[in-house]
């Protein structure tokens, strides 16, 4: 097949500066790593870890209630203040909401994710994926705004239940202690609905991913062994999808825990952890107490993650 002949190339010539740099990097893989990782690592250590460290340090600083000034005297007073009953209420209120939102998201997400995995084929599969992803990434503040429009007096939701003749039911709901309020926009129910809406996609995708990994032959095996649909669902699908639900709840729980904008705009007065932090540093200027307050969600989330890891949620991410 061949008729050409190849001349012989001479041995390596003397090296230029650039090539010498290449040689130096080749001989020291650690230097290569350093060059690549140096910039991002420096950025994260200085900007991010540095900030977190100053935040933690601030939580031990002293805030003078009279002069409204922060001094660098170290104290544990801020943490003691956390344990006051009023602050405890804030934590409890936030936790209750985060749990309710996670539960509701799971209930809403499961049938949708199940349908996506089991029945959506071809273009429908893509459609469902985009239909979940798009609202998830769509602007947070715009979505919250849309809900104030939806829930407003004379808005779409009022219009709908008036026309369905459910006005009485809604009035009754508004009188209930844990759900009610003066109007939908200022009710616990309204706030709960908005929270659930905003974080729902973060539940759907992990559940869908977990269900996607259930092999089809497992379902056949189950029905071969005489299980009916409900039994297969209860004993095969549900346990296998559960880590996905836990993984999703990490998002819904932690995102609700840290939010301060929704509680500020929708629902009755009464602070959440997020709004507490925001108010403390903002209008009051008590950065040390605000800093101490941020430790609360971090601890709760850390506990939650530890529990979630035990339930196998990280394999579903």
């Amino acid at each position: 097949m061949m008729t050409a002949s190849l001349p012989v190339t001479p041995a390596a010539p003397a090296l230029g500066l650039w090539q010498r740099l290449g040689v130096a990097l080749y001989r020291r893989p650690g230097l290569q790593l350093g060059l690549l990782l140096g910039l991002p690592l420096l950025w994260f250590l200085v900007v991010y870890i540095g900030s977190l460290a100053t935040l933690l340090a601030q939580s031990f600083f002293t805030f003078d209630d009279f002069t409204m000034e922060v001094s660098r005297e170290l104290t544990l007073a801020n943490y003691r203040q956390l344990l006051q009953p009023a602050n405890f209420d804030v934590v409890l209120r936030t936790l209750l909401m985060a749990s309710a939102v996670s539960l509701a998201s799971a209930v809403l997400a499961f049938p949708l994710a199940y349908y996506m995995v089991r029945y959506a084929r071809g273009w429908k599969k893509g459609f469902f994926y985009v239909a979940v992803m798009l609202p998830m990434w769509a602007s947070y503040i715009v979505k919250v705004y849309a809900w104030t429009v939806l829930l407003a007096k004379d808005g779409m939701v009022y219009w709908a239940y008036q026309h369905l003749g459910l006005g009485g039911v809604m009035d009754w709901l508004m009188t209930l202690p844990l759900l009610g309020g003066n109007s939908l926009t200022t009710s616990h129910l309204g706030r709960f609905a908005v929270f659930t809406y905003i974080w729902l996609p973060f539940m759907i995708l992990p559940v869908q991913a977990a269900l996607e990994r259930v092999p089809a032959n497992l379902l056949q095996a189950s029905s071969d062994l005489g299980a009916n649909g409900a039994q297969t669902f209860r004993h095969v699908i549900l346990p296998l999808a559960f880590p996905g639900v836990v993984a999703g709840s990490i998002f819904t729980f932690s995102l609700t825990l840290g939010d301060y904008i929704i509680p500020q705009i929708i629902g009755p007065s009464g602070l959440f952890i997020g709004s507490m932090v925001y108010t403390m540093q903002g209008s009051i200027g008590n950065m040390p107490l605000a800093a101490a307050f941020t430790v609360v969600p971090v601890v709760i989330i850390a506990l939650y993650l530890t529990g979630a890891r035990k339930l196998g949620a990280f394999d579903a991410l």
Binding site: G50, L55, V277, Y278, Q281, A291, T294, P297, V298
Partner: peptide, 15 residues
């Protein structure tokens, strides 16, 4: 991204 945005925000502000 994993920690609530409020923590990132206030940490940066304090720094």
């Amino acid at each position: 991204i994993a920690l609530p945005g409020i923590i990132t925000g206030i940490a940066l502000l304090s720094a």
